[in-house]
Design a protein around this nucleic acid. Structure first.
Lengths: 97, 97
DNA sequence: GCGGGTAGTCAAAAAAAATTGACCTATTGT
DNA sequence: ACAATAGGTCAATTTTTTTTGACTACCCGC
C-alpha cells in the first residue's frame, strides 16, 4: 500500500537505512564498487540483498552504474553528485554515535 | 539475531527510519509531544507503533520523557541535546529531497 | 569444452516491523 | 457516581524486509 510522504527526509532516511546500505555507502565513498567484490567484503551479506540495495541506491540517484568495457569487462557503481552530497550527513551521524 | 555494527551511522539511521519516526521528530522540534495528541496529529498511526517509536527514540537518548505534575497531570516528550543535534542532519536531508 | 570469474534473477522461506483490537490503570470533569 | 481523557500494554495477525538456494548468461584461459 503506497502512502504519501509527510516528511521529505523520510524517503531518503528509509532508503539509507535498509540493511547493508550504510556499509555499501561507506565503501562507495572510498572507491567505486563491484558486485562480487562487495559480496566478499561485506561478510554476512548475500547476492539478493546487495542487488536490491544497489538498485535502490541507484534508483534514488545516489549511485551510478557504469559498464567498464576494458580488461575484464565489468560493472562499477560509484557515487553521483547527489550521493556525494550525503557524505557530510553521514559524518554528522557518525559524530553523534 | 543480534549483529555487531560495522558502521556507526547505521544504528542511528535505523532508529530514525522506523515508521512515523521522522514525523515524530519533526513535531518534537516544534514543541514537546503528548501521546494522545500525537495519535490525533499523525493520521494513519496507531498507539502501539507510536509507543514503540517513542520508546526507541527515548532509549536512543533523542527524546526525554517528563511527567508534568500540574493541571491535567500528563507526560511530555521533548528533544534532548542529542536530539537537537540531529536537527541540522534533518535539514540537510530535506535539502536533498 | 571445462572450470572459474563476473553479474546477476527468481521463487520460496524466514525474520523483523507494523497494525489491530482488547484490555488496563489513574486522573479529571460534571 | 459515571464517563471521558490520558497514557499506555498485550497477543495475534498482517505486511514488509531479508535471506536462502537454485539457476542464467557472458567472457576468459587452457
Amino acid at each position: 500500500m503506497e502512502e504519501k510522504e509527510t516528511c521529505p527526509a523520510q524517503r531518503l532516511l528509509k532508503i539509507l537505512s535498509g540493511k547493508w546500505k550504510a556499509e555499501i555507502f561507506r565503501l562507495a565513498v572510498e572507491s567505486p564498487l563491484r558486485f562480487n567484490n562487495l559480496l566478499r567484503q561485506i561478510q554476512g551479506s548475500n547476492k539478493q540483498s546487495l542487488a536490491t540495495a544497489l538498485k535502490e541506491l541507484e534508483e534514488e540517484g545516489l549511485l551510478e552504474k557504469t559498464t567498464i568495457k576494458l580488461k575484464p569487462l565489468h560493472i562499477e557503481y560509484s557515487l553521483t553528485e547527489k550521493g556525494k552530497a550525503l557524505i557530510p550527513v553521514f559524518r554528522q551521524l557518525e559524530g553523534l554515535s
